[in-house]
C-alpha cells in the first residue's frame, strides 16, 4: 500500500512525454538536493556538487546516479519521483551550471 501511494504521488510529478519543466527542476535541485548538498550546492552532509566538483562525470552516468542513488551512502534513488529525461536535465544542469 505504501509503495502504491508513493507511485501515485510520483506519477503526478513526472510526465514522461512532456519536456522537463526547468523552473520546477531547478527549484528541486536547490531546495531538495540542497537538503544534503546545500542550497548553493557547495556541500553539506553530502558532497560539493558544483560543476568543478563533478567534472569527472559524464552526463549519462550522473543521470544514473540521480535515478538510482549510490548504495551504501546517503544518496537516495530519485527514480520514484522523476523521469529519465528529467534526470538527464538535472545532470546537464549540475555539470554546466545552466539550464540545458
Amino acid at each position: 500500500m505504501r509503495s502504491v501511494a508513493v507511485f501515485l504521488a510520483s506519477a503526478t510529478l513526472a510526465h514522461a512525454d512532456e519536456p522537463p519543466d526547468s523552473s520546477r527542476l531547478s527549484h528541486l535541485v536547490h531546495q531538495d538536493c540542497g537538503s544534503c548538498h546545500g542550497l548553493t550546492l557547495k556541500g553539506g552532509l553530502g558532497p560539493d556538487i558544483r560543476p568543478e566538483a563533478l567534472s569527472h562525470y559524464d552526463a549519462e552516468i550522473l543521470a544514473d546516479v540521480v535515478l538510482d542513488g549510490i548504495p551504501g551512502t546517503a544518496m537516495p534513488p530519485w527514480r520514484p519521483s522523476m523521469s529519465e529525461a528529467e534526470a538527464r536535465w538535472i545532470a546537464e544542469y549540475l555539470l554546466t551550471g545552466y539550464a540545458p
Binding site: 509503495s3 531538495d32 537538503s35 544534503c36 542513488g69 546517503a74 534513488p77 530519485w78
Partner: peptide
C-alpha cells in the same frame, strides 16, 4: 520492512 529512499534527514 523495506527501507524507503531518504530524501531528508
Amino acid at each position: 520492512k523495506e527501507d524507503l529512499p531518504v530524501y531528508k534527514m
